[in-house]
Computed example of a mutant assay.
Amino acid sequence: MHGLGLDGARLIIDAALDAARAAGIRVSCCVVDAAGDEIAGIRMDGAPWFTCGVARSKARTAARMGVDSAVVAGIKADHPELVTLIDGQLPFDVTTLPGGVVIRDGQAVAGAVGVSGAHPDQDVAVARAGVDAWLGR
C-alpha cells in the first residue's frame, strides 16, 4: 500500500458521499493524514454549516489517537485526566463523537476520515464506506 495523498482522499470522499446519497442523508466529510492535517474536505448541499468543522475534528481525533473517535469515549471514561492531558497537547479539541474512522496502511496509521451531519451510526457507516473503498482500491 501507499500513503493516503490527494487521490486517496478523493476516492474516500467519493465513496463516502455515494453511501450518504444512498442512505438519503446530507453530510460533511473530511480526510486527514496521519498527523491530522487536512487533505480534503467537502460539505454536501443541505448539510448544516457546522458539520465541516465537526467532521474535521472527528478525523483529526481518529488519526492522532490511532483509534476511531468513538473509542476515545471509553478512554475518557476510564482515564479522564489522560484525555484532558492529550487534548492540551493538540492544536484541536479531541472529540468522542462517533464518525471518525482511522485508516491504516498495514499496521501504521495512514490518516482518518471524519463524517458529520447524520445519526452517529450513519456517520460511522458513511466513513467506513470511504475507508473500505480506499482499502479495496
Results as ranks from 00 to 15, higher is better:
residue 1 M to R: 07
residue 2 H to L: 11
residue 3 G to P: 10
residue 3 G to Q: 13
residue 4 L to A: 01
residue 4 L to W: 01
residue 5 G to T: 06
residue 5 G to S: 14
residue 6 L to A: 08
residue 7 D to W: 01
residue 7 D to Q: 09
residue 8 G to T: 02
residue 9 A to P: 04
residue 9 A to N: 03
residue 11 L to W: 00
residue 12 I to V: 14
residue 13 I to S: 09
residue 15 A to L: 05
residue 16 A to C: 09
residue 16 A to L: 12
residue 17 L to W: 03
residue 18 D to F: 12
residue 18 D to L: 11
residue 20 A to T: 06
residue 22 A to K: 14
residue 22 A to N: 13
residue 25 I to F: 04
residue 25 I to P: 02
residue 27 V to T: 07
residue 27 V to M: 06
residue 28 S to E: 06
residue 29 C to H: 05
residue 29 C to P: 01
residue 30 C to R: 06
residue 31 V to K: 01
residue 31 V to T: 07
residue 32 V to N: 00
residue 34 A to N: 11
residue 41 G to R: 15
residue 42 I to C: 09
residue 43 R to Q: 11
residue 45 D to A: 15
residue 48 P to W: 01
residue 50 F to Q: 15
residue 51 T to R: 04
residue 52 C to A: 14
residue 54 V to E: 15
residue 54 V to M: 04
residue 54 V to A: 14
residue 58 K to S: 00
residue 58 K to E: 00
residue 59 A to Y: 07
residue 60 R to Y: 01
residue 63 A to P: 12
residue 64 R to E: 11
residue 65 M to T: 11
residue 66 G to V: 04
residue 66 G to Q: 08
residue 67 V to K: 07
residue 68 D to G: 15
residue 69 S to W: 05
residue 70 A to K: 11
residue 75 I to M: 13
residue 78 D to E: 15
residue 79 H to T: 08
residue 82 L to H: 10
residue 83 V to A: 09
residue 84 T to A: 10
residue 86 I to H: 14
residue 88 G to P: 10
residue 89 Q to S: 13
residue 90 L to R: 03
residue 92 F to H: 11
residue 92 F to C: 10
residue 94 V to C: 09
residue 95 T to S: 05
residue 96 T to Q: 03
residue 98 P to Q: 01
residue 98 P to F: 02
residue 98 P to C: 05
residue 98 P to V: 04
residue 99 G to I: 03
residue 100 G to R: 12
residue 101 V to Y: 07
residue 102 V to G: 10
residue 102 V to A: 12
residue 103 I to F: 04
residue 103 I to N: 08
residue 104 R to I: 05
residue 104 R to C: 09
residue 105 D to G: 10
residue 109 V to W: 03
residue 109 V to F: 04
residue 114 G to F: 07
residue 114 G to H: 07
residue 115 V to Q: 08
residue 116 S to E: 02
residue 116 S to W: 04
residue 116 S to T: 02
residue 117 G to A: 00
residue 117 G to N: 00
residue 118 A to L: 03
residue 121 D to R: 13
residue 122 Q to V: 14
residue 124 V to D: 13
residue 124 V to Q: 10
residue 125 A to H: 09
residue 127 A to H: 06
residue 127 A to L: 06
residue 129 A to Y: 11
residue 130 G to H: 04
residue 130 G to T: 07
residue 131 V to D: 02
residue 131 V to M: 08
residue 131 V to E: 02
residue 132 D to P: 03
residue 132 D to M: 06
residue 133 A to N: 05
residue 133 A to K: 06
residue 133 A to E: 08
residue 134 W to V: 00
residue 136 G to L: 13
